[in-house]
Design a protein around this nucleic acid. Structure first.
Length: 575
RNA sequence: CGGGGCGUGGCGCAGUCUGGUAGCGCGCACGCUUGGGGUGCGUGAGGUCACCGGUUCAAAUCCGGUCGCCCCGACCA
């Protein structure tokens, strides 16, 4: 691969429309160009990276026993109507009509298509289990595409679906995929963490996300500093804690109403009364399901986890009620609502149980109550884990660990789906007794193009990208200081040929540019091993190898260059 | 969906308030120079100022509309 015959339009300056490191660097390194919002061209260097990742994914999926196939991108509305997602999916699903006015959509994911295929092809338990995967371009009309390849509307994804006769077998496959994913992301040279995850719109009951650790990540995750527990912050459980001082007050003082004019938020009232936020019981009013208003109680320093609330209330959607609605139904303006005497059903976070000496809204404007004692003064309809876990919380799985928080980029997710799609779409098999049963399913995704961006977020410096060897466009960059100079050119050309014949892919910077320009571009595009050939080195009979990651250099005698470089590359691939 | 910002040679920007000759840096082409971290000098090409309409003798600039792109937010009482 020669630079002069490859399209690598590098840029000196950051593009004006890019915000994140990976977006800026991908554009500056001449790897991607935006076509429309969330839609990009993949230039030759980027495609090389994508192909590297795909190869690793294919190898590990095949090793795990999955089979590759390819489903269409366009699918007819009927299949989506059958699963119910035609209505549920919303605007993210791009729909269109063909010339006969029939409805179609572009696949944002392929449960419907694969389930349709399998139900038409499989009859017996003897044909199960199997796992089918594809690597394909997906389209989701995201509300807010952003950050280059990180959240595009069009993106490349590997999606796999497995089919089983029994729950146990499906869970076994889940573990197989879990291991395969660990291998894949390890081989891609990423620092990542599998975390327990919510199953979201896809449904199902068991799921892990694979999160690449990066401060710029969109997802908050927590992990235990002592055991293996890690979860998406939205999913993370909160361990019930014994209240300290709960039994200290034998005879609690009576509830007292205090005036708090204009003070509504916990922070305001806490400052006004000179009390810590964790002494407060915060009352939020949600609109649940059919429009019922429900009061949700959490400690003043805690935040409600909508996901947990949905589960506890047993409804699909919960939103904070608006002000007018609250005043109408509860007779109190928000800010002064409290559990005592409230005319709404109330559910409480477990941390509320047994609270004493607490501060709550008084259910009248400009007043709060102090010295509230939960057991004595009010009883919510239920106590449950309703809050968001935060750093410092005790680990829900082990005895002595505490949770740390991190940011992550989700590059993969695996789900146990169960019968959700097979039941909706009638994908069944006959068991050994001749009974018809719905097939057990799992699904497993990897964001290939996002992974490339995540790798950069995690591997870059002020000068550019630092690709891990395994997913670099090529492992070696040959850089002649002056390609026009005959002696250097001979050495370089010979090295290029020798490395190529050894199966080492090489990019040769054969441009007639100043050395400085070539060095800058080399750093920018992030090829892991740079081999510089110039008159100075050749006087000593040497070429110079330099690692992009740490700047380490090594002089190599010309005669040994090819074999030495080959072994350096092999070594690098192992890391 | 709400709020904010931007749209001027390939890229990054100034010019717009206060209408009149479209400018800078980088890049590009050519020549000389230089040759181990974006070399120096010179010459030159390249722009319907996002689009449509209006005001005006005259519009990148003022007015109206449209489109595109970027960022933030969607109510923690």
């Amino acid at each position: 691969m020669r630079w002069t015959t490859t399209l690598i339009p590098t840029l000196k300056e950051d593009p004006a429309d890019a915000e994140t490191v990976s977006h800026k660097l991908l554009v500056r390194a001449g790897m991607i160009r935006q076509v429309s919002r969330g839609i990009y061209d993949y230039l030759p260097l980027a495609l090389k990276v994508i192909r590297k990742i795909e190869t690793i994914v294919r190898e590990e999926m095949d090793r795990a026993g999955a089979q590759e196939l390819l489903l269409p991108i366009a699918s007819p509305a009927e299949l989506w109507q059958e699963s119910g997602r035609w209505e549920v999916y919303g605007k993210e699903l791009v729909r269109f009509k063909d010339r006969h006015e029939r409805d179609f959509c572009l696949g944002p994911t392929h449960e419907e298509l694969i389930t349709d295929l399998v139900r038409r092809a499989v009859r017996s338990y003897r044909e199960l289990p199997f796992n089918l995967y594809q690597i394909q371009t997906k389209f989701r009309d995201e509300v807010r595409p952003r950050f280059g390849l990180m959240r595009g509307r069009e993106f490349i994804m590997k999606d796999a679906y497995s089919f089983h006769a029994t729950v146990e077998d499906c869970r076994r496959e889940y573990q197989v995929m879990f291991q395969a994913y660990n291998r894949i992301f390890t081989r891609c040279g990423l620092k990542f963490r599998p975390v327990e995850a919510d199953t979201g719109a896809i449904g199902g009951t068991l799921s892990h996300e694979f999160q690449v650790l990066a401060d710029s990540g969109e997802d908050a995750i927590v992990s235990c500093n002592s055991c293996e527990y890690a979860a998406n912050a939205l999913k993370a459980e909160v361990k019930p804690q014994r209240l300290s001082g709960r039994n200290l007050t034998e005879s609690a003082p009576p509830v007292e109403k205090v005036s708090t004019p204009g003070k509504k938020s916990v922070a305001e009232v806490a400052e006004f009364l000179g009390l810590a936020p964790d002494r407060f019981i915060k009352t939020l009013v949600y609109k649940a399901g059919e429009g019922e208003l429900v009061a949700v109680l959490v400690r003043g320093d805690h935040e409600i986890n909508d996901l947990k609330l949905k589960t506890v209330l047993g409804c699909e959607n919960v939103t904070l009620a608006d002000e007018q609605e609250i005043e109408r139904k509860a007779g109190v303006p928000p800010g002064y609502i409290g559990p005592i005497g409230l005319r709404l059903r109330a559910v409480a976070d477990q941390a509320i149980q047994g609270m004493r000496g607490a501060v709550t809204g008084a259910n009248e404007a400009n007043a709060h109550l102090v010295e509230v004692d939960q057991e004595r003064d009010f009883t919510p309809s239920a106590f449950a884990d309703l809050r968001l876990a935060t750093a410092g919380d005790p680990c829900p799985r082990c005895d002595h660990g505490a949770l740390e928080s991190h940011r992550g980029i989700e590059v993969g997710q695996i789900f146990y789906l169960g019968k959700k799609y097979s039941e909706a779409m009638g994908a069944t098999y006959l068991d050994a007794e001749g009974r018809e049963r719905p097939i057990e399913m799992g699904c497993y995704g990897i964001g290939i193009s996002r992974l490339a961006a995540a790798a950069i977020e995690q591997n870059h410096d002020g000068n550019g990208i630092i690709w891990p060897f395994s997913i670099a466009p090529v492992p070696v960059l040959l850089l002649p200081i002056n390609y026009k100079e005959e002696k250097s050119r001979d050495v370089i050309d010979r090295l290029y040929a020798e490395l190529s014949s050894r199966g080492i892919a090489v990019l040769l910077d054969d441009r007639d540019e100043r050395p400085g320009v070539k060095f800058k571009d080399a750093d920018l595009i992030g090829i892991p091993l740079r081999v510089t050939v110039g008159a100075k080195g050749l006087e000593r009979g040497c070429v110079e190898a330099r690692w992009r990651r740490d700047g380490r250099t090594e002089d190599i005698p010309v005669a040994e260059a090819a074999s030495r470089i080959e072994s350096l590359v092999r070594e690098g691939m192992k890391l």
